[in-house]
């Protein structure tokens, strides 16, 4: 995307969904995720005034990550494992859905729980890779560690997920 004349509305349109899903998979809570996405977009709105055209993705995901870490600090809490969402399961029973959608929705809460049990650094790397779709180099840039560290975090994160989900 061209960086020149970028507005926060552009960013919300092109990246809002990714920011929200990143936040949702990291917190496991849709309300927290929405608050966080709003915080990120406000930071983007303020930051664009001084943003220098360059690596836009690096800039955006650093902001997103910082907002998330600030949020953890402010709330003095770690992301918690939510209780199984009974309401959603009940809803599934009454609403017929195509098989593949059903499989995905059923799969959702368990994978989410497993994600929340991962150490923060692993979860962040896995979510940035598989939910947001960033390359390893982009993740390393956003997190501020060498690419080798990201390789290791993603692989170990996946290993632990597989163990929890088997």
């Amino acid at each position: 995307m061209s960086d020149v004349g970028l507005t926060w509305e552009d960013v919300a349109r092109t990246h809002g969904r990714k920011i929200y899903n990143f936040a949702y998979r990291l917190t496991g809570n849709p309300d927290d995720a929405a608050d966080l996405a709003q915080d990120v977009l406000i930071r983007v709105k303020r930051g664009l005034a001084t943003y220098q055209p360059g690596s836009f993705d690096g800039w955006l995901w650093r902001i997103t990550r910082n907002a998330f870490l600030d949020d953890i600090r402010r709330k003095k809490r770690r992301p918690t494992v939510p209780l199984p969402d009974e309401v959603d399961r009940m809803a599934l029973a009454s609403v017929p859905a195509p098989d593949h959608v059903l499989a995905q929705v059923r799969l959702g809460p368990d994978v989410q729980n497993a994600l929340l049990k991962l150490p923060h650094d692993f979860r962040e790397a896995v979510v940035m890779c598989d939910i947001v779709g960033l390359s390893y180099a982009e993740i390393a840039g956003a997190v501020g560690v060498p690419v080798g560290t990201i390789r290791s975090r993603i692989h170990r994160g996946r290993g632990q997920l597989r163990e929890m989900l088997s």
Binding site: G16, R17, I19, Y20, N21, Y24, R25, P30, A34, A37, A103, Q104, V105, L107, G108, V111, Q112, L115, V126, V127, D130, I131, R158, L161, L165
Partner: peptide, 11 residues
């Protein structure tokens, strides 16, 4: 499994 997680719309 992670990639299969539904992508949600932002409120």
């Amino acid at each position: 499994m992670v990639r299969a997680l539904p992508i949600l719309d932002m409120p």
